[in-house]
Design a protein around this nucleic acid. Structure first.
Length: 221
DNA sequence: GCATTAACACGTA
DNA sequence: TACGTGTTAATGC
């Protein structure tokens, strides 16, 4: 995916005036982050709104004992990081690239300018935050109610639900260890769960990648 | 009982 | 070589 594909596929850009769109394109920065590189660190000042052009990143935190907790996987096409911008506070989480990723960075000043001047941009943000809230509520619900296989299935599915065109890319380049982090289980357990999902014809597992065959089936598992 | 950690062999980039 | 995968055994809640 290219920067223009990201922008064309972003709902918020179409609600802007021509002038606003020009400012966005002019001020936007493109940055490539290598695998395992940081998009932003916890505690850093929040200067940008991020759009993922290609690759895969995770929102991550580390406990006092050093245990890593993955909160959210973010696929290409998704905008994120607005929370800390809106609250004008430092980043509350690390964002790490799971493989080489290309990001679009929209400066805070432009973000705030759109917020103050464009009603449809505000509407878009409400929808975005509302969707994200729903996603986190579902994540808590899943953790409390579902077995491990279903949790792994939904962790995978949730990364495609946010995709704008779910039919374009049905393979996900992610290690089983990372998938375990996303679902909150060990690598070995994630591996066993994938086997079961594969037996059910919902996906196929290859070296370092997972191909989704039946997205609805994964959601309903 | 079930998931986790640890450990090992094996295959792939 | 370094990393991801598949598997088993020991350990812990």
């Amino acid at each position: 995916m290219r920067i223009d594909d990201l922008l064309d596929g972003s709902l918020w850009i179409h609600g802007l005036t021509k002038e606003e769109q020009e400012v966005v394109r002019k001020e936007m920065i493109v940055k490539v982050i290598p695998a395992d590189g940081f998009v932003c660190h916890r505690g850093e000042t929040s200067d940008y709104w991020f759009g993922l052009i290609s690759g895969l990143v995770k929102m991550n935190n580390v406990s006092l004992t050093g245990k890593a907790v993955t909160l959210l996987g973010i696929p290409a096409g998704v905008w994120f990081g607005e929370g800390s911008l809106l609250k004008n506070e430092p980043r509350k989480y690390d964002v790490v690239a799971l493989r080489q990723s290309e990001l679009a960075l929209l400066p805070k000043a432009v973000f705030n300018w759109l917020l103050e001047n464009n009603l449809s941009f505000n509407r878009y943000l409400i929808d975005l935050l509302n969707n994200r809230l729903g996603q986190f509520i579902a994540a808590v619900e899943n953790e409390r109610l579902l077995d491990v296989e279903a949790r792994v299935a939904r962790s995978l599915a949730s990364m495609f639900e946010t995709q704008l065109s779910p039919k374009i890319n049905q393979t996900l380049q992610i290690s089983q260890e990372e998938l375990g982090h996303l679902a909150g289980v060990s690598r070995q357990r994630a591996n066993a769960a994938l086997k079961i999902l594969e037996e059910n014809g919902l996906l196929t597992v290859n070296y370092g990648e997972i191909k989704i065959l039946d997205l609805d089936g994964l959601k309903d598992f």
